[in-house]
Simulated scan of single mutants.
Amino acid sequence: MKKRIFALLLVSIMVLSLLAGCASKAETPETSGTEKKVFRVGMECSYAPFNWTQKDDSNGAVPIMDSSDYAYGYDVEMAKRIAEANGWALEVYKIDWDGLILALNANKIDAIIAGMGVTEERQKSVDFSEYYWSGDMVMIVNVDSPYASATSLEDFRGTKVTSQLNTVWMDLIPQIPEVDEKPGLGGNSEILVAVRSGKLDGTILGETEAYSAVLANPDLAVVKFEEGKGFDYSKGEASNAVAVRKGDSETLEAINKVLSSFSAEDRSALMEKIIKMQPILE
């Protein structure tokens, strides 16, 4: 009889232990549904004022995955706001420009927020959000160059020009009359060195990037053309949007909802603040 009672007690203890274990397991984040979705964003982290690399988390910079460095800039602020509004955990990945769309479509990242313009060619590979920034297309020359006072593309006839590989700026170069087009280069810093050294008479950049570059390089000047005398381009090519995988409507809708909540004034104020913070101005 005693053995029977002991056996029943033992079974009861085991059952209670199992129930307690199940209860405690049910309360963990992994099973309670409290885990945040991870929002993986790719960018160059070398394209101020939109994105850059720095050594610490000052000014709200976020860690770059698989690195001891941090990323900040206008694109990072956009990524942070999108993630926070949706309750997502943000991860930033540093990826070369040419590899961004490849990484997105290989599911290594969920979105590209990298100052990317909207072109028909890119729309074949990715879906784009609403624009989160827009500007003009301008040229950068040496401040003492005869082209610094140019007012039209005709003034650049026969000049040596190039820009960053695989960008909308490269596609605009043939619009310059009799242009001496040079091979595209890898990034803005390399291109600006070529302009300063005289290897190039000028380069094409977006207006925001150009004025940002001139703030850091006072020996350079921005050439903004008179209306109707500059480059011919679509609004999408001169604007920046978030890229997501084709058919990822859920992520796209969540991003657009956040972007639509920011007015043009809010975006301009943020960009002005970011330009003053970029490390190349220190």
Rank of each mutant, 00 (worst) to 15 (best):
Q278F: 03
K108I: 08
E27F: 10
A210V: 02
E91K: 15
L165I: 07
T151K: 14
N105D: 09
I173D: 01
K108S: 07
I113P: 03
S129V: 00
E265W: 05
V92L: 04
K199D: 14
S189A: 13
L259D: 04
N51A: 08
F50E: 12
S152V: 07
C22W: 11
I275N: 03
L172Q: 11
T203N: 11
E237F: 00
K124R: 15
V193D: 14
I112H: 07
L165Y: 07
Y147P: 01
E253D: 15
V242A: 05
K182F: 01
S68R: 10
S249H: 11
V168H: 01
A264S: 14
M43H: 13
G184M: 06
E282Q: 13
E272V: 04
V161I: 15
G33L: 05
V143L: 10
D248H: 00
Q54L: 12
N240L: 05
L153P: 08
K273V: 02
S129K: 04
L18K: 04
C22F: 12
D155H: 10
V168Q: 07
D66M: 10
G33V: 10
N240S: 14
F231R: 10
S145K: 11
V11Q: 06
I101Y: 03
E237S: 13
K36D: 03
P63K: 02
V143T: 13
D57F: 03
A210H: 02
S67E: 08
S263V: 08
E272F: 04
V161L: 15
I140V: 15
S189V: 06
T251D: 11
G230T: 08
F50L: 00
M78R: 08
N217F: 01
K36R: 15
L10N: 11
E181H: 04
K229N: 09
F231E: 09
M170G: 06
K229I: 05
S268R: 14
I255M: 01
E30N: 09
A26Q: 08
D232T: 15
I274S: 02
L192R: 12
M116T: 13
I82H: 08
